[in-house]
Design a protein around this nucleic acid. Structure first.
Lengths: 351, 351
DNA sequence: TTTAGCACTCTCGTCCCGAGAGTGCTAAAA
DNA sequence: TTTTAGCACTCTCGGGACGAGAGTGCTAAA
C-alpha cells in the first residue's frame, strides 16, 4: 500500500492540490513550472506513469493531463493530510463567532452550519444533538379554541415538543393548568420507561394527556436524529463540475431528501466514535447518487447521552486538507457545547 | 387595457398555456393543430402580430414562434386565471394530509411547504406565523454545568424561546426552580410592556433572569418573521431554463439568503391583506435577481395577532392557473390553523 | 537514473453549410 | 371587410471538416 517513494508522494500531493484548485487535468510541464520542481517534465511524466499504473491517477483522454482517481484521493487523505491541523487563525475566528452567540441556543446549529460551509467552501450539514434517553422536565397546557389544547413538553436536555390535543369536551384553562401541575409533580425527572410504568391515572383528562406525552417522548427518542441544518449549497453549485450538468440537480435533491444522509450516517458511523472523521470519497461504490461527490463526516456529542452528526458535502475534488481539520475542530467544539448543556442531567434526581 | 377581442384572449391564453408546458416558443401552425382551432394559421399569425404590437408577445428571433412577455403573463394572470378555483380533488388531498398531521404542530409548516411545492411543481417558501404581541406563559430554568443555566420560555401562542444564561456564581436547581415559579406567578399572561413596567425585583438572580426574558420576548416580537421553511427547490432546477446556465445558482442563492424574501415581503405586502394573492412576474423591474422568475405570494393568519407568509417561487413560465389557487387555498387553510391555536389568548386574562 | 527530442493522439473552437421552422406580405376568396 | 392560400425570406440548429494546441509515451543520449 504505502510503497510510494517520497517523490511519488510529493507529485501525487501536488496533483491533488493543483486539481482541487483549478479543476483542470494537470500536465507534467505545468506541474514543474507552477511548483518550481527541480526536475524535468520527462521525469515527472515517468512518475506519473507509475502512479497511473498503481491506480492513483488517470487520464480523462489520451492527450490530457492527469486527474486523481478515487484511490488517489484516498491515499492523499489517509497518508498525507489526515493529521493536518486547523490553522490558529481559523480556530480563533470560529471560537470568536461562537462566543458571540453563546447565549442564543437556537442560533448554535445554524451558526455551525454556516461556519462549516464557509470554511470548507462547500455545503454543510448538521443534525441537532439527539438525546438518547432524556427526562421529562415540564409540561404546559395552553387552551386554544374549544376542545383544542396546545401541549408544550420541555425535556431535560432542553428539547421542546409541541402537539395539539383534541379533548372530548371543552375544558377551561384553570383545570388544564391544574392537570399540568399534577402531571409535572408526578413525572418530573423521569424517563419514558419510568413514566410508562406508573400506575394509571384516574381522571380521564390526565390519562389522555399522559398518553400523548409518552407518545411525544417516544417519538423524540426513536427518531434517528434531530432537526437538520444545511448551508452553503451555493458553494457546491458554482463548482465547474456542476455547471451545465444534471449533477447539480442530483446534489440539490440529495440535500432536500434527508433520507440519504440518514442512511449514510447509519452505515458509516455505527460505533460511537466521537472525534473520528470519516471521509467518503465518490460514494465508495455503495452510493450511486454520490458518484462525483465526497462527504466528510464526524459525530459529536456525548455517547450515551446526546449525539449529533456534522458533515461537509462537496465535489470529489474538495480541499480535504482544509475540510478535514475544520470538521474535526467543529465536532470538538459542538461536543463541548452539548456537554455544557446536558451534564446537569444526573444531578436532577435530587430535585 | 382590456381592449383585446375574445379571440385574442383565447390565443394569448393558449400560447401561455402551451409555453408553460413545453418551454418552446409556440408557432401559429402548432397552435392550430394542437388545440384544433377552427382557424387557419395565417389568421392566427395576424392576431399574433397584433398581440406582439400590444406588447403581450415577443419573438426570441425572427423565425421562431412567440413567447409571452412579462406583460403577457400579467394579462393572463389578472384577466384570465385570477378567479380560477382549485379543483375539488386537490382540495381534498390537501385537507386530508393536514388532517392526518393535525396533532403534530411541528409538522405543520414543513408539511405545508411540501404540499405547496408538490402542487405547484415549483419551489415553496413559508414563514412560520409570527405573533405581533404575545404574552408570557411559562418559564423553565434548567441547571446545566456550573454557572450555566438553560432558560426555556413558552409564550401564549405556543412559541418557545431558548437561551443560555451565565450566572455570577453556581446556583442549585432547587433555587432556580423557586425563582422560576416566582417569576411565573408574577408574569403569567402579561405582555412585554406590562412586564417591563413592573417594579424591579430585589433578588439579583431574578432580576438577571427577567432581563433575559424581556430580551427574548423583544427579539421575538421585533423579528420580521418566524422561521422559514423551504421545499421543492429541485422542481425549479430541473426546468429547462435553469439547466446549463448560472440562473440555477442564482436561484439557489436566493433561497439560501432569506434576506431577499424578507425585502420582497415587506415591499409587496405592506397592508394586512389576508387572502389576497400577489403575483410578482420577472422581478417587475425592481428585483434584478428575479429576472427570469416569478413569485406568487400571500399572507395568512390573523391581522393584529399572528401572521405569516407563504409563496411559490418558479420560472416566469410557471403554471399560474394551478399555482394561484393553490396558494390562496393554503393561505386560508393556514389561517384556520393559526386561529385555532391562537384565539384562546383573550380568554386568558381570567386565569 | 535523468533528460532532451520527437512523433503521435486527442480535444476544442471555429467555420461552413443545408435542413427545417416560422414568419410577414400579397393577392385571392368568402 | 375578413379570412385564407401561397411564397419568398430569415434565422437557428446540428453535423462535418479542420487546424491549433496541449500532453503524452517512447527512444536514445547524458
Amino acid at each position: 500500500m504505502s510503497e510510494l517513494t517520497e517523490r511519488q508522494r510529493l507529485i501525487l500531493a501536488l496533483i491533488v492540490r493543483d486539481y482541487t484548485e483549478t479543476a483542470q487535468p494537470v500536465g507534467s510541464s505545468r506541474l514543474v513550472e507552477a511548483y518550481k520542481l527541480d526536475l524535468s517534465s520527462a521525469t515527472v511524466r515517468n512518475e506519473m506513469v507509475a502512479l497511473t499504473d498503481m491506480g492513483y491517477l488517470r487520464q480523462p483522454h489520451t492527450s490530457a493531463g492527469r486527474v486523481p482517481t478515487e484511490e488517489g484521493y484516498r491515499y492523499f487523505v489517509t497518508h498525507i493530510v489526515y493529521q493536518a491541523d486547523l490553522p490558529d487563525a481559523a480556530r480563533h475566528t470560529i471560537s470568536h463567532q461562537f462566543y458571540q452567540a453563546r447565549q442564543d441556543v437556537e442560533q448554535w446549529m445554524p451558526l455551525a452550519a454556516s461556519i462549516l460551509a464557509h470554511q470548507s467552501r462547500a455545503a454543510s450539514l448538521i443534525t441537532a444533538p439527539h438525546a438518547e434517553r432524556s427526562r421529562y422536565k415540564h409540561l404546559e397546557l395552553i387552551s386554544t379554541q374549544g376542545r383544542q389544547v396546545l401541549m408544550v413538553l420541555v425535556m431535560s436536555g432542553g428539547e421542546v415538543g409541541q402537539q395539539i390535543l383534541t379533548l372530548a369536551e371543552p375544558v377551561p384553562q384553570d383545570r388544564l393548568s391544574m392537570a399540568a401541575s399534577r402531571l409535572n409533580e408526578l413525572c418530573a425527572g423521569r424517563t419514558t420507561e419510568e413514566i410508562a410504568a406508573l400506575p394509571p391515572r384516574s381522571g380521564s383528562l390526565e390519562k389522555d394527556i399522559l398518553t400523548l406525552v409518552l407518545q411525544d417522548m417516544n417519538r423524540g427518542e426513536q427518531r434517528v436524529s434531530g432537526e437538520i441544518y444545511l448551508d452553503g449549497l451555493t458553494n457546491v453549485l458554482s463548482e465547474p463540475e456542476f455547471i451545465e450538468s444534471d449533477d447539480a440537480r442530483r446534489a440539490v435533491r440529495l440535500f432536500e431528501e434527508r433520507s440519504l444522509f440518514q442512511d449514510l450516517l447509519a452505515r458509516t458511523m455505527p460505533d460511537s466514535s466521537i472525534g473520528g472523521v470519516q471521509v467518503l470519497i465518490g460514494g465508495e461504490g455503495k452510493w450511486e447518487e454520490l458518484k462525483q461527490c465526497s462527504v466528510v463526516l464526524a459525530r459529536y456529542g456525548i455517547p450515551g447521552h446526546a449525539t449529533g452528526m456534522l458533515g461537509v458535502f462537496g465535489p470529489m475534488r474538495m480541499a480535504y486538507n482544509r475540510t478535514i481539520p475544520t470538521v474535526r475542530f467543529m465536532a470538538d467544539l459542538l461536543s463541548g457545547l452539548v456537554s455544557e448543556t446536558i451534564s446537569g442531567e444526573d444531578s436532577q434526581n435530587e430535585q
